[in-house]
Simulated assay, not measured.
Amino acid sequence: MEMSVKPKIASSVGVAKPAAKKDLRKTAVADLQAFMTAQGQPAFRAKQIQEWLWKKSVTDVAAMSNLPQTLREQLAEQFDILPVTIAQQQKSNDGTIKLGLQLHDKHLVEGVLIPTETRMTACVSSQVGCSLTCKFCATGYMDRVRNLDAAEIYDQVVLIDRLAKQNYNMPLTNIVYMGMGEPLLNYANVLESIRLITSPEGLGWSPKRITVSTAGIAKMIRKLGDDKVKFNLALSLHAANDEKRNQIMPINESNSLVALRDALKYFYAKTKGEITFEYIVFYKFNDTLQDAEELYQFTKHVPVKVNIIEYNPISEAQYVNTDPQTLDKFAAYLEKRGVVVNVRRSRGKDIDAACGQLAIRNKN
């Protein structure tokens, strides 16, 4: 369960309620410019503020040193910046770092830094909890509380990048939207966060270093195509058979493999973007050569690569990882048919930071 703190309610008798401050990071440039005019400041100050917020990742107006002191005081009186903060931190034996990240309303999400010799990858969350109830995923056993806004997703990247530099003297190289939540059910905020991360006025990342993973929302995959996104798309497939996929991923009942196939073809036609299928091989469930053949047939619709992922058991589910020999045979079957296959070994299992294990648990 996510941790939340209920604020104490004070008596308001005889006390004037202060005006609520606006969220500076949700204030449009035009509104900031109007504020500057009202304060007798030049309109270009708004652009300076945007640069501090999104290029320099500043979360305190007092640090905006090229603004006049009086303006900084006026901003502090009328605006808030609501940054994500690190509430918990664990480091795995393999170097993976899992973070419990606290939002302004005291809810928690998890983010992960996954280091290798050549890459530093941030795994970020897009929702508090999740509504999709995938049977093998710890987050799927939580309720969906709310969507994250774009700044909250952006903050995860900034915080994890700092950790990478502090711990490994290396900046982030990749971002995956594979943490808590279904990114395509928080579509606008996810795309806005990617704009902030990739824009020259933001962090200036290449979108090709970003991958958004979905459990398979066909109409939203089509919308990605219509919006001609430039980041990579990953589909959490885990079975290329409707009957089996229905058992582990209830979303498949309304987004069948045929619907997903057609959506992926549409997406690829519109974007020519890289597509990856993620496939966890569960013991005696989807690990036979017949399952591999069904997966191979599904890969023929669009150019894809397949990531075969080692499963990380959770207490809520009965599924376990297949044995190494079966996994190797499964991968070899696909490779012989020309499929690009990567076998992803788990990272951070000892701290519940591996794929499918993210869930905020109340430890009280």
Rank of each mutant, 00 (worst) to 15 (best):
A259G: 03
L113V: 10
T326Y: 03
P183L: 06
L235G: 01
R361K: 15
S11N: 15
C134N: 01
A87S: 14
L75G: 01
M170A: 15
K219F: 08
Q39R: 12
P250S: 10
N232G: 01
S254M: 13
D262M: 09
W52H: 03
H104R: 10
S254Y: 12
A138W: 01
N307W: 08
N286W: 06
V13I: 14
A359M: 11
I81R: 01
N364G: 12
K98V: 05
A188D: 14
V157Q: 03
L71I: 03
E77N: 13
R25K: 15
T121K: 04
S65Y: 11
K270H: 12
E201W: 04
A34D: 11
P83I: 04
V258L: 11
T214G: 03
K300L: 15
K228N: 11
N169R: 13
A87C: 07
G273D: 02
S193A: 15
E243N: 13
Q90M: 12
A122S: 09
N362S: 13
K228A: 13
N66C: 09
P83K: 00
V258Q: 14
N186Q: 06
H238P: 05
S57P: 03
P83W: 05
L67I: 09
N232F: 08
L75Q: 02
Y279H: 06
Y141H: 15
D105W: 09
L24E: 01
G179S: 09
D350C: 08
